[in-house]
C-alpha cells in the first residue's frame, strides 16, 4: 500500500498534547456535521485529516480557531482545549485565539495589497513590532519561513495578487506564521496548486513542523502519507480511525479505513 511514498521518515517526534478535543459535535442548523469526535493533536507534529468530501474534516479543523463562529447557523458543542485551556470559554476572545492558531485556506487568498503589507498585517494589528526595522525583520523572517523570500525579496512592494498560485499560497503561509502562532491549520492548502508548487509547500510543511503543531486537511492520501506523522480518518462526521500515519496506511484497524485508502470508497 502506497509503496511510492517514504513512510519511514514520518515518525512521531513528540508526544506533548497541544490540542485536546473531547466529544466535539458541530451542527449546521439541525444537521449534525461532526458527531462526538475525540482527537489529540500533538505538539510539533503534522496531523493529517483525511476522508471523502463532505465528511466534516474541514468543519472540524475550523473548530480549532473558532472560524465556525463566523457562520450564523453553525453550533459547536464539546470541549476543545489548547494547552489545557478551553478555547470555547466565554472569557476567550476568538481574536486572541486566532493569533495563536493560524490558518491557511484552500484557495490562496492574499490581500489585494503589497507582498510586504500582506505579511506585515498580522504583526501590525497584534502590535508585535516595536519599530519599522522590527517589522522589516518579521516580514523577512516570515517570508523566509514561507520559503518564498528569494523569489519576492526584490519586489516586496509589488501586489501579492500578482504572484503565481503556488507563490500566493506560500505567501499566505508566510502571512500565517508572521503572527507567531503555536498551531497552524491548513485546509487543503495544495488543492489549487500544480505538482511542483505542491512539492514546495509540502517541503515547507515539513520544516514548519520544527516549530509548530500543524494540522492539515487533505484530499490526497499520498500527501497525508508524505507530510504527516499522525492521521485521522473521517467518514460521515465520525472519526473512524486515528493513529500514526505509518500504521493507518500500512495496517489500518478499521475496515472502512482500509477500503478508503485502497480506493474502494470515497
Amino acid at each position: 500500500m502506497l509503496d511510492d511514498t517514504n513512510l519511514a521518515e514520518t515518525t512521531v517526534a513528540n508526544d506533548d498534547i497541544k490540542i485536546a478535543a473531547r466529544d466535539v459535535s458541530v451542527y449546521y442548523g439541525d444537521n449534525q456535521a461532526i458527531k462526538g469526535v475525540d482527537v489529540d493533536i500533538a505538539d510539533r507534529t503534522v496531523t493529517a485529516f483525511i476522508g471523502p468530501s463532505g465528511c466534516g474534516k474541514s468543519t472540524f479543523l475550523r473548530c480549532f480557531n473558532r472560524m465556525n463562529d463566523t457562520i450564523d447557523i453553525c453550533r459547536v458543542t464539546g470541549d476543545i482545549r489548547l494547552d489545557g485551556e478551553d478555547i470555547n470559554a466565554k472569557s476567550v476572545d476568538p481574536v486572541q485565539l486566532r493569533a495563536k492558531v493560524g490558518m491557511v485556506f484552500q484557495k490562496p487568498n492574499p490581500f489585494p495589497k503589497s507582498i510586504y503589507d500582506n505579511v506585515a498585517y498580522g504583526p501590525r494589528i497584534h502590535g508585535l513590532a516595536k519599530s519599522k526595522a522590527d517589522l522589516d525583520d518579521i516580514v523577512e523572517k516570515s517570508l523566509r519561513r514561507g520559503a518564498i523570500w528569494d523569489e519576492v525579496k526584490d519586489r516586496l512592494h509589488a501586489p501579492g495578487t500578482g504572484l503565481s498560485g503556488g507563490q500566493q499560497q506560500r505567501l499566505c503561509i508566510a502571512r500565517a506564521v508572521a503572527t507567531e502562532p503555536e498551531v497552524l491549520l491548513m485546509d487543503e492548502p495544495c488543492s489549487a496548486l500544480d505538482p511542483i508548487a505542491t512539492a514546495q509547500v509540502e517541503e515547507l510543511i515539513d520544516e514548519l513542523r520544527q516549530t509548530y503543531s500543524v494540522v492539515i486537511v487533505t484530499h490526497s492520501m499520498q500527501q497525508a502519507a508524505r507530510v504527516s506523522q499522525k492521521t485521522a480518518f473521517f467518514h460521515l462526521g465520525n472519526l473512524v480511525e486515528f493513529g500514526e500515519t505509518t500504521q493507518i496506511f500500512t495496517n489500518p484497524k478499521d475496515k472502512l479505513t482500509e477500503s478508503y485508502i485502497t480506493g474502494r470508497i470515497g
Partner: peptide, 18 residues
C-alpha cells in the same frame, strides 16, 4: 467582496471590525 478575504483577515486574528 469575496468571502475568502474576510476569512483571510479573521484567520490571522483580525477582529470583525478590522
Amino acid at each position: 467582496v469575496p468571502p475568502s478575504i474576510r476569512d483571510a483577515a479573521l484567520g490571522i486574528g483580525a477582529s470583525k471590525m478590522q
